[in-house]
Amino acid sequence: MRISIITINYNDVQGLERTIKSVQEQTATNYEHILIDGGSTDASKELMESYKNNFSFYSSEPDHGVYDAMNKGILKATGDYLLFLNSGDTLYSNDVLSKVQPYLNTSLAIVYGDLYIIGEDRPSFIHRYPSELDFNFFKNTSLGHPATFIKKELFDVYGHYRTDLKIVSDWAFFLNVICAEHVSYQKIDLTISNFYEGGISTSADFTELRKQEIKTVLLDHYDLYDSNYDALIKENNSKAAIYDLVHPQIGLITTNKTLLKILNKFISLLSFILRKKRSL
């Protein structure tokens, strides 16, 4: 199966070169690299020109945001599976595509592995995704694009990324195809990519916009939103803050229902102790 690696970029020439070199170092050969630049005003265009023989397609022109650029890449892709490796992110090892290939020679719609998170202001760690995905998982998080191989025909059947959403369109796509359409998927025991924190998807500045876009998706398509959802988000954010105080990876186990119950009991006990101390 052929893989289409799609990289989008805007004014991140250093990150772009890091990503390009990472792809070039792969031992596998059955892939293509597509680069979509949003009309950068730094040296990105010159860098693209210097590496142009390594791309099956590249362009530099204004777009309407991240998901518009990703959709442009989808339209140019000729591979069976797509991997979105955006500017700055890198593949975990130079043989990771070779290791993934055997899992792609199937009819699976989505194949995903783990993601190495390179922290901006916290220790780096491997984000290990669960093997079972359901609404309870997507209630808290989403699959990482750089760790997920998506069969191209999914976009033909279920549509491309919504461009009216600025932050959560990938989450909305995964929620639809996995939870509503029940497409096939498989978790593989491989770390796929290195993801550098600091972009729009991980910025605290966009927390409110993210919440509003999630609300829009749930109201428009699932009729699942009610006033309790605001309280749920607030509760999850509070728990996440406590998890990070203990260890940044503890929050990852909240997708496991048994471990979640244990962790919730621990949090309740911790809260009880804190209340007692304050009352003294």
Results as ranks from 00 to 15, higher is better:
Thr191Glu: 05
Thr29Ser: 15
Lys72Asp: 05
Ile110Asn: 00
Asp244Met: 10
Glu49Phe: 10
Leu91Tyr: 03
Gln212Ile: 05
Asp63Glu: 08
Ile6Arg: 05
Asn53Tyr: 07
Met70Lys: 15
Phe149Pro: 06
Asn264Met: 09
Ala231Thr: 13
Glu17Asp: 04
Ala231Asp: 15
Leu224Trp: 10
His145Asp: 12
Phe57His: 15
Leu245Cys: 07
Lys277Gln: 13
Leu115Val: 04
Leu91Ala: 03
Gly199Gln: 02
Glu181Asp: 11
Asp12Tyr: 07
Phe155Asp: 03
Glu181Met: 08
Asp37Pro: 09
Lys21Thr: 05
Gly251Ser: 11
Gly39Trp: 11
Asn237Arg: 13
Ala77Ser: 14
Glu32Tyr: 05
Ser142Gly: 10
Ile262Lys: 15
Glu49Trp: 06
Ile150Cys: 02
Glu153Ile: 09
Leu91Ile: 07
Lys239Ala: 04
Ser107Met: 03
Phe195Pro: 04
Ile110Gly: 00
Gln101Leu: 08
Asp244Pro: 00
Lys234Thr: 15
Gln24Ala: 12
Lys151Ser: 09
His182Thr: 11
Leu108Ile: 06
Ile253Asp: 07
Asn256Gly: 10
Lys151Met: 03
Glu61Ile: 09
Trp171Arg: 03
Val183Glu: 10
Arg2Trp: 07
Ile117Thr: 08
Leu224Ile: 01
Asp80Lys: 09
Glu213Asn: 03
Arg278Asp: 13
Ala180Ser: 14
Tyr161Trp: 09
Tyr129Arg: 15
Gly199Leu: 02
Val100Cys: 01
Thr19His: 05
Thr7Met: 00
Phe55Ser: 06
Tyr243Ser: 11
Leu143Ile: 06
Asp42Ala: 00
Glu120Cys: 04
Gly73Ile: 06
Asn194Gly: 05
Lys72Ser: 11
Asn140Glu: 12
Arg122Gln: 08
Leu133Tyr: 03
Phe174Asp: 00
Ile273Trp: 08
Pro130Ala: 01
Thr27Glu: 15
Leu232Glu: 08
Gly65Cys: 09
Thr258Ala: 12
Phe195Thr: 01
Val96Tyr: 08
Ile253Leu: 14
Met1Asn: 07
Gly251Asn: 10
Ile267Glu: 14
Leu269Arg: 10
Val217Asn: 05
Phe135Val: 11
Lys257Asp: 14
His33Ala: 00
Ser93Thr: 15
Leu218Ile: 04
Tyr92Thr: 05
Asp244Glu: 13
Thr258Trp: 06
Ile200Met: 12
Lys151Ala: 10
Asp244Asn: 14
Glu120Gln: 14
Glu25Phe: 08
Lys52Ile: 04
Ala172Asp: 05
Tyr58Phe: 15
Tyr161Thr: 02
Thr19Ser: 13
Lys215Tyr: 02
Pro146Glu: 09
Gly119Ile: 04
Lys276Tyr: 13
Ile3Pro: 01
Asp42Tyr: 04
Arg162Thr: 06
Ser87Ile: 05
Asp170Ile: 09
